[in-house]
Design a protein around this nucleic acid. Structure first.
Length: 554
RNA sequence: GCCCCUGUAGCUCAGUGGAUAGAGCACCAGCCUCCGGAGCUGGUGGCCCGGGUUCGAGUCCCGGCAGGGGUACCA
């Protein structure tokens, strides 16, 4: 990345200045290269002189000047200026910028990808909705955020595994089995007492009816009837969850069963490890995790008086498997904000397993407040008043759904007004972005009709023919893409992607409005065609990371 | 009570400690002989309050205020 090149230039200048005594030798300084908001200040700027002025006991301007004089030559940087109160501003050679269009086309769908995560394995676990009900709209937000984070990490070179943790053990499954069995019996016209704390949603009645018509009275009686029927029902639920998620391009490499932790001995190994490291205690007939020894607020129960493990104990086993079993270098858990209290505990647990807690990161997705107009819609499985992800997808479409969930940072709550989302669908920014891609595709189609084959890359391109401001801005916008991907990966903030895509689309629409591609002088047409193709490549790559489609026509 | 997240334009949201805080929607005024007007151009309008750190704070720290979430031998 050009940004790294400029950082290296500054580091070299600093080294030289310290070698010849112009600047005092200080400990490592970050070159602090950033993009100025105001383009008059160049393509990149460094505030290093301002940051080191105090410790160097020199004026920032003097430091800036010393650095500027010692900067190594670099062909892509044509201007370096010192600006008060102490910036070093860098201007890129506009001809070099335009030639990067060729680089974009050469790299194709790999343009924007980086290497910061090369050789590092990362697991992203997300959604993980209990298989007792459908995916609702709040889960959808986590699904989109998680899948985009996984995409962005992968694009940064990480070896990524996308995982869904199936909570198929524990009391909520028993409850689901009983609830389903009751619905099944009711569907067969029999008296059945529905559990007070059961799952009241309409989806379970439908499932009960489905199983009743399919299996008849096969599961009415018998010791294990409810359980056997429940297993079938759970598999159906998981299938339906999978289908819903696939509609918004959310896919998993592995569906990890909580039960398997107990079946294969991982659970015992994990608890033994925690015990061996001295972080368990027996009190009041229960086994506790003494997280307070590791800075947690309070101790937590692992095994109840009844002998049944808590879900927390399962989670210990699960993370034991992630770090000590499958040996992921990094683990990212995407959780709903209602699980926030669980984060310090999990950090403490990982610590207790002898793993650096920094390797475990969380994205806490804040809750979605559903509205219909002014009316707030509460999501409740107990009442059955559920707005499912599937419903939202059907109303606003998968691309708009993804864009909407992606464009807000995970730690900000959001209102989702279904009426508004429907009404504004044609004005949604997603169409603006996709329209840019459709226009690009249209130009390429027209080029073919005019006897120009855009895919023929044999002809030499005169990028110096691209001298217009709008062309320059479009190319500049394209070059920012790798930096955006890197930023999104480093901070686990996929919401930068849609904002970037919008800006890139704006740069293209502006170019499109002001200049024609086809019908100009041949060398201009060819150069603009390449610019257009490159814009399409970057747009498509950005949309791909967002999990959105890039339609050639709309 | 304690812990976490959030407070930026009328509304929905961006804004890696930097130079003159940005978009969309809405509102006002313009642009179609020409590659798709789902587009383009201009205008109105803003950092919750009070301290602090810093050469520099929307951004970091402390204290308020407001909204949301969490504080189980539920998950």
């Amino acid at each position: 990345m050009i940004k790294d090149t400029i950082s290296d230039m500054l580091s070299e200048a600093l080294r030289r200045a310290q070698a010849d005594g112009a600047l005092p030798a200080l400990e490592h300084q970050d070159p602090a290269v950033e993009r100025p908001q105001n383009q008059d200040h160049g393509d990149y700027a460094s505030s290093l002189p301002l940051k080191m002025a105090r410790s160097a006991r020199m004026s920032p301007l003097a430091i800036a000047e010393i650095l500027r004089e010692r900067l190594p030559e670099q062909e892509e940087v044509t201007s370096v200026t010192v600006a008060p109160p102490g910036f070093v501003n860098f201007g890129l050679d506009s001809r070099w910028i335009m030639r990067q269009v060729g680089t974009v086309l050469t790299e194709g769908d790999r343009f924007g990808h980086g290497t910061s995560g090369t050789g590092v394995s990362a697991q992203v676990e997300f959604v993980s909705v209990n298989p007792t009900g459908p995916v609702h709209v709040g889960h959808g937000r986590g699904a989109v955020q998680g899948s985009a984070v996984a995409n962005v990490l992968e694009a940064s070179g990480y070896t990524v595994q996308r995982e869904y943790y199936i909570n198929d053990a524990g009391s909520q499954m028993d409850n689901f089995f009983e609830s389903l069995h009751a619905r099944y019996l009711q569907a067969l016209g029999r008296d059945a007492e529905f559990p007070t704390e059961g799952y009241h949603g309409a989806y379970l009645m439908e499932l009960g009816q489905e199983l009743a018509s399919e299996f008849g009275d096969q599961y009415v009686d018998g010791e294990n009837a409810a359980r056997e029927l429940g297993e079938i029902g759970m598999a159906r639920m998981i299938d339906s969850i999978r289908e819903d998620l696939e509609r918004i391009d959310v896919r998993f490499d592995r569906w990890f069963s909580e039960r398997s932790l107990f079946a294969d001995g991982t659970y015992e190994k994990a608890i033994d490890e925690v015990r061996a490291n001295g972080y368990t205690a027996e009190r009041e007939g229960a086994v506790w995790f003494t997280g307070t020894d590791l800075g947690d607020e309070r101790d937590s129960v692992l095994v109840r008086q009844t002998g049944a493990p808590t879900y927390f104990a399962s989670d210990i086993a699960y993370h034991y498997d992630k770090f000590l079993g499958r040996r992921f270098d990094r683990v990212v858990n995407v959780w709903g904000a209602d699980h926030q209290g669980h984060v310090p505990r999990m950090k403490a647990v990982v610590n207790a397993l002898g793993v650096d807690p920094e390797r475990l990161q969380f994205i806490l997705v804040q809750l979605v407040t559903l509205k219909r107009g002014d009316e707030v819609v509460r999501v409740s499985k107990r009442t059955g008043d559920i707005i499912t992800l599937a419903e939202v997808i059907s109303e606003v479409g998968p691309d708009a759904c993804r864009y909407f969930f992606l464009s807000r940072s995970a730690d900000a709550q959001m209102d989702f007004d279904l009426e508004l989302a429907k009404r504004e669908a044609p004005d949604n920014p997603v169409y603006y972005i996709q329209y840019a891609f459709a226009r690009i595709s249209s130009i390429l189609r027209n080029a073919r009709e005019n006897g120009i084959d855009p895919d023929d890359m044999s002809q030499a391109v005169d990028f110096d023919a691209l001298t217009e401001e709008a062309e320059h801005q479009l190319a500049r916008a394209m070059l920012r893409f790798p930096e955006v991907v890197e930023l999104a990966a480093r901070n686990l903030e996929p919401h930068h992607l849609p904002h970037y895509a919008y800006e890139l689309a704006t740069a293209f629409h502006d170019f499109y409005t002001k200049h024609r591609v086809l019908g100009e002088e041949p060398h201009v047409t060819l150069a603009r065609l390449r610019l257009t193709q490159a814009a399409g490549t970057v747009l498509r790559n950005a949309l791909a990371l967002m999990g959105m489609s890039a339609p050639e026509s709309m």
